[in-house]
Simulated scan of single mutants.
Amino acid sequence: MKNIYLNTGTINEVFTELETSFKGILNSNNNEFKLALDSNLIKGNIDGVTFINGITSIQASITFSDDTVLSIEPLSKSSILFAYCTEGSVKHSFGVSGHESILRKHHSAVVTSTRSINTILHFQKNIPVKLSLIKVETEEAAHANSSLISQLKKTFLHREPNYSYQGLQNLKIAEKFEQVAAVTAHGMIGHTIKKEILQSIIALEIEDNTANLIKMSRAIKRSALNQINELKKISSFITHYAVEAINNKVSIAKNRITIK
């Protein structure tokens, strides 16, 4: 079992630390980063891009040769992290002893945290993993009034102190990440195309989460109505039984009087 600790910071700092920790070769240009990995512990590639509106995307296609636990410094209270797995699976927990959830193939997850506790990722040895991450810093001045950011805050922030939501299989999101990886344009044009695709992924995540919350709310309401109906049936039965019992007692009493 390998344990690796990563500090958070700017994307440049993150990739520099990844390069050092995994002994990789890093190339960066215009806020885009490409890290090639070929060591005894890990093989694969990690690509990243960051935008001035507070959105950062990282896509990893990696295989560890040993079971590995990656401990990442706490997110800021205003950050939202989206994760999507296109191959393999990854376990996630808040802290080493926290509850573990599994991010499986073609499933997404949303993570926020208001506590100073590390995010832990568990990777199994010799299992290829393709993982895409989008981090949105909601307090960036450049997009403080954005309707998309407003929806993000309303949907995902100010919930549990450490919030983790596991979405259902969503192939639309998978297609969008494939589009990001397929962008060949360079410079400002490529940068803009990627930003538009990533924003559409975030919109899909909001839609997915909202739809599931509505379904849950409806299910809870149906359950409550069913319980109320059952209680009404029980109440009606008890009332009917009580009336019959009283009538029987009255009838018996009348019969006794008549006999006398």
Rank of each mutant, 00 (worst) to 15 (best):
I214A: 07
I214K: 02
I214M: 09
M216A: 13
M216Q: 14
M216P: 00
M216S: 13
M216C: 07
S217A: 15
S217L: 05
R218N: 15
R218P: 01
R218T: 09
A219M: 07
A219G: 09
I220D: 15
I220N: 15
I220E: 15
K221V: 07
K221S: 14
K221Y: 11
R222V: 03
R222T: 07
R222Y: 12
S223G: 14
S223W: 04
S223P: 00
A224R: 12
A224F: 03
A224T: 11
A224L: 10
L225R: 08
L225Q: 15
L225I: 06
N226L: 05
N226K: 10
N226A: 10
N226W: 01
N226T: 09
N226I: 02
Q227T: 08
Q227Y: 04
Q227R: 08
I228S: 09
N229S: 09
N229D: 09
E230A: 08
E230M: 03
E230N: 13
E230L: 02
E230F: 02
L231P: 00
L231R: 13
L231V: 04
L231H: 12
L231E: 12
L231T: 06
K232D: 10
K232L: 02
K232E: 08
K233Q: 07
K233S: 09
K233Y: 03
K233T: 03
K233F: 00
I234W: 01
I234E: 11
S235E: 08
S235A: 11
S235V: 03
S236L: 03
F237T: 09
F237N: 13
I238A: 13
I238P: 01
I238R: 09
I238K: 11
I238M: 04
I238G: 02
T239V: 07
T239P: 00
T239Q: 09
T239I: 06
H240A: 12
H240E: 06
Y241I: 03
Y241Q: 14
V243T: 12
V243I: 13
E244D: 08
E244F: 03
A245T: 08
A245Y: 04
A245D: 12
A245I: 02
I246P: 02
I246C: 08
I246N: 11
N247L: 07
N247F: 01
N247W: 01
N248A: 10
N248L: 07
K249F: 05
K249I: 02
V250C: 07
V250E: 10
